[in-house]
């Protein structure tokens, strides 16, 4: 059985309809009307121990809601969640010991306390013995450079410092499963790199990770499996490379020739591909499906028209693919 399992997971929020004005307010007191919004819609998900899963989707797709359902913060409207056999919202305390949660937008540090004290309160709460605690803290210090921020008050931290301290707070009890919601949001490149490195080492040690992020670099660096959610439904679940195979079939070959070539003739010789003119008569692009023909075949066909001075192949980045999935340009399943 998978470590984290969700079956038919659904969350519906009810929002009261607010009619404007005093009359609307009075009517609202008598007859309450609601609009239902399905945030997460029959999601099935299974994550094995030690897996690192990226969970992506456009804003409002239901990413955070899923994370909150999996961690037991929200109670599902329908369906069920089990983490290591435990239903998180029913058995919070047992669940809490196994999981670590980080919401990048929000800190769990105590505003008025030095970071060291916040961590020590958590140590007490999780019942971590001194030796283990010191060992973990030392490790976090090596990767996240906590030392300098431990004495600072929570409210005085910069965003980057806060995120590093929050990572430590989420992981101080050595959780089996870690949910990270936007752990690099608003950070500069240097801190982002450090956080990514830390997550990789965490993954290599066998911690199960579920990561949501808008920065796909985070995902490529840390995860091998990708789950895409849109409108509360999962529209892709598989290996990152499989995503490319499925959606990124298209290649574009950019060519520069030694002599002018009539594009119509080129098009005629390349059935199934699309030829478009470039910014000079000797430059043009060929768009083709890499499963229908190979780049070598395209080059060979072109060489029959004129000598090729230069060419390169564009492969869509994972970012392009995901962006096009969001925008509905690529229909999944």
């Amino acid at each position: 059985m998978a470590l984290v399992e969700a079956r038919g997971l659904t969350k519906v929020f009810r929002r009261p309809d607010k009619a404007p004005g005093l009359k609307g307010a009075l009517r609202q007191l008598v007859v309450r009307r609601f609009t239902e919004k399905v945030a997460v819609d029959h999601v099935d998900l299974a994550i094995d121990a030690g897996e690192a899963v990226a969970y992506v989707g456009p804003n409002g797709a239901g990413k955070s809601t899923t994370v909150k359902l999996l961690s037991g913060i929200l109670v599902p409207t329908a369906g069920e969640v089990r983490v290591g056999g435990v239903e998180p919202h029913r058995d919070r305390i047992a669940n809490a010991h196994r999981i670590g949660v980080l919401f990048g937008q929000r800190t769990q540090l105590w505003w008025d306390l030095p970071v060291a004290d916040s961590l020590d309160v958590l140590r007490d709460m999780y019942g971590i013995d001194r030796a283990t605690y010191t060992r973990r803290l030392k490790r976090f210090d090596e990767v996240l450079e906590l030392g300098e921020i431990l004495p600072s008050l929570g409210r005085r931290l910069s965003l980057g410092q806060r995120m590093r301290a929050d990572l430590a707070a989420a992981l101080i009890h050595g959780p089996e499963v870690v949910y990270l919601d936007e752990p690099t949001i608003g950070l500069d490149i240097a801190v982002k790199d450090r956080v990514r490195g830390f997550l990789r080492s965490l993954r290599d040690e066998g911690t199960t990770i579920m990561l949501t992020s808008h920065d796909l670099r985070d995902i490529e660096d840390v995860c091998r499996r990708l789950v895409i959610i849109d409108g509360g439904r999962i529209i892709f679940d598989g290996a990152l490379t499989a995503l490319k195979d499925e959606f990124a079939r298209e290649r574009i070959l950019h060519v520069e020739t030694a002599a002018d070539v009539p594009l119509a003739a080129v098009q005629a010789s390349l059935a199934g591909a699309t030829v478009t003119a470039g910014d000079s008569p000797r430059r043009f692009s060929v768009r083709f499906n890499r499963f229908a023909m190979t780049a070598g075949q395209v080059v060979a066909a072109l060489a029959g028209h004129a000598e090729l001075v230069d060419f390169h192949v564009d492969e869509p980045s994972i970012e392009d693919v995901v962006r096009r999935v969001y925008s509905g340009e690529l229909m999944a399943r």
């Binding site: 037991g72 305390i93 809490a96 999981i99 949660v101 919401f103 958590l122």
Partner: peptide
């Protein structure tokens, strides 16, 4: 303000 989130994932009564 949604500040109960973290309290709900700690091993101490909310």
């Amino acid at each position: 303000n949604g500040e109960l989130d973290y309290l709900l994932v700690r091993p101490y009564p909310v």
